[in-house]
Design a protein around this nucleic acid. Structure first.
Length: 154
DNA sequence: GCCAACGTTGGC
DNA sequence: GCCAACGTTGGC
């Protein structure tokens, strides 16, 4: 089982939105970066654990846990001309963008803000904390995942 | 294939 | 709102 971090801007889709969704599950649509796409399409597996991170929030923070409940399949929003993530250049027979289904597991007992992540020595190698790192889908080491959950439980 | 211009991300 | 860093686009 692998571990991941998914970024979302809570002003457009928050962990609470995921929690309130039918079966607490949603298709993680709208990812339009090839590196992230490859992770979604090829690497994320059913049962993998996911940290949900609120970016462009005050403060930016890890706020919840989720799990992958369906592996990569074509993101339907790429074919919807009315959707913000419509991609006219993506052929239906060979879709460019993929999504997984993610199910909320629990809201963390306490949000862990990025300032606190930066202060934890065991997290110093986390992709999220590296300068210029913008990837919205990131692998997380099991030890990092555990350290963040521990911080949230303090 | 290079690379300048442009657009986006996202913390601060 | 600023702006550094990065990804994408498109002319050549």
């Amino acid at each position: 089982m692998r571990h991941w971090l998914l970024k979302t801007e809570p002003s457009s889709f928050s962990f609470d939105d995921l929690w309130k969704a039918p079966r607490r599950t949603t298709g993680w649509s709208g990812v339009r970066n090839y590196q992230a796409r490859n992770l979604i399409r090829d690497e994320m597996k059913k049962g993998d654990r996911v940290l949900i991170y609120h970016s462009s929030a005050e403060p930016p923070a890890v706020v919840g846990e989720a799990e992958v409940v369906r592996e990569g399949y074509p993101d339907p929003t790429q074919f919807d001309p009315r959707d913000d993530h419509f991609d006219a250049a993506s052929p239906r027979e060979r879709p460019r963008w993929f999504q997984v289904d993610v199910k909320a597991v629990r809201k963390l007992p306490r949000d862990v803000p990025i300032s606190e992540l930066r202060g934890a020595p065991e997290l110093s190698k986390m992709a999220l904390l590296q300068r210029g790192q913008r990837l919205s889908v990131q692998p997380v080491a099991p030890s990092e995942y555990a350290a963040i959950v521990k911080l949230a439980e303090q």
